[in-house]
């Protein structure tokens, strides 16, 4: 009957098992840490697994709180306005750049202090198995021959999957209609034959690739990632130089003390390295890729300028 109590017992037990020592008083963290989660679906689930593992590392609960909406704007605004003491962190992603340049967030990535990158997610491009398209090149040739536009299902206009698909089809020089379905519906629309292509996260296609209904043409990263579905990179498949990947990580409001960041970073590293996290990540189709705060910061910065120029080029930039 008691969530909190069960959780406390579990936490206490695991804290004892893991560390064997109790942190001294008045040391961070003294109270529960709130981890704001911006999206639903697998992003939320993996965030909860991470929070659960970090709780065990820190010996103090890390609570995943859902603050969805506005493409991430709601959650980012909330965390930015909290005190920079490490008790409010955000499960963030490249969405900080997309939502900023879309014009819905008055501040950008520099309102936050990076803690650690946790993993990478690489969008993939899928078609129906009966489409008659064997590869990306094959599709490009056959569709160009018909002269009709390709219908591509994405998560939302200005979303990361939109950006990815736009970058890909721009490189391939194809005429495309983007159909925004919101989180998670594009695979169903592809199965039903209302669209030609879906650009989504690999885990969403797994059951249908296994059953043979769908096939994945390529993944959008420059380097091949060992995800749940084995597929060539789009660059290999004909879209030369394409490199779009999404990272997920943790960040705190700017000006959070470095020793607090260091503590959270260490807990994030231990959590990411734990067997439980690896197993859950594998089952959810998430690729763990830990990166410490400083390097993570550099990546955020360079990705931000890439996204800005990409969105500008595709006519999606409003800020």
């Amino acid at each position: 009957m008691r969530v909190a109590s069960i959780k406390t017992v579990m936490l206490a037990a695991s804290a004892l098992a893991v560390s064997g020592h109790t942190p001294a008083r008045a040391e961070f963290p003294e109270k529960p840490i709130e981890m704001t989660v911006l999206f639903g679906g697998s992003a939320q689930t993996i965030g909860q697994v991470l929070a659960d593992q970090m709780s065990k590392q820190l010996g103090s609960p890390v609570v995943a709180v859902s603050r969805p909406g506005g493409g991430g704007a709601i959650g980012y605004s909330y965390v930015k306005d909290t005190a920079p003491d490490g008790y409010n962190i955000v499960w963030n992603s490249n969405s900080i750049s997309t939502v900023h340049y879309q014009g819905n967030l008055p501040f950008g990535y520099d309102a936050f202090q990076p803690i650690a990158r946790i993993g990478m997610e690489v969008p993939v491009v899928a078609v129906r198995s009966q489409s008659g398209w064997d590869s990306l090149q094959d599709m490009v040739e056959k569709v160009k021959a018909t002269g009709r536009p390709l219908k591509v299902g994405i998560s939302g206009l200005g979303s990361f999957t939109h950006l990815t698909a736009a970058a890909l089809f721009d490189k391939l020089g194809m005429k495309v209609v983007y159909i925004p379905y919101g989180e998670g519906r594009a695979p169903a629309e592809l199965l039903a034959g209302r669209i030609d292509v879906a650009a989504q996260w690999p885990s969403q296609f797994v059951p249908h690739v296994q059953s043979g209904a769908l096939k994945v043409l390529c993944q959008t990263g420059a380097k091949k990632t060992a995800g749940p579905i084995d597929t060539p990179t789009c660059a290999e498949a004909g879209a030369e130089g394409l490199d779009v990947t999404m990272w997920r990580g943790l960040a705190a409001p700017a000006n959070t003390p470095p020793e607090v960041i260091a503590k959270l970073e260490a807990a994030a590293k231990a959590a990411t390295d734990s067997e439980e996290f690896k197993k859950a990540a594998h089952n959810l189709g998430f690729t763990p890729a830990f990166l410490p705060a400083s390097e993570f910061g550099q990546q955020i910065e360079s990705d931000d300028s890439t996204i800005a120029s990409l969105m500008d080029q595709l006519g999606l930039k409003n800020q």
């Binding site: 639903g40 697998s42 939320q44 689930t45 998670g184 059951p207 859950a280 089952n283």
Partner: peptide
């Protein structure tokens, strides 16, 4: 189909996946 129609079934789907059930 492995396709959740709303946020609640999406969480249930996550719970299934964590335990290796696809």
């Amino acid at each position: 189909l492995g396709i959740p129609g709303d946020p609640a079934t999406a969480i249930i789907l996550g719970g299934f996946l964590i335990h290796g059930i696809q």
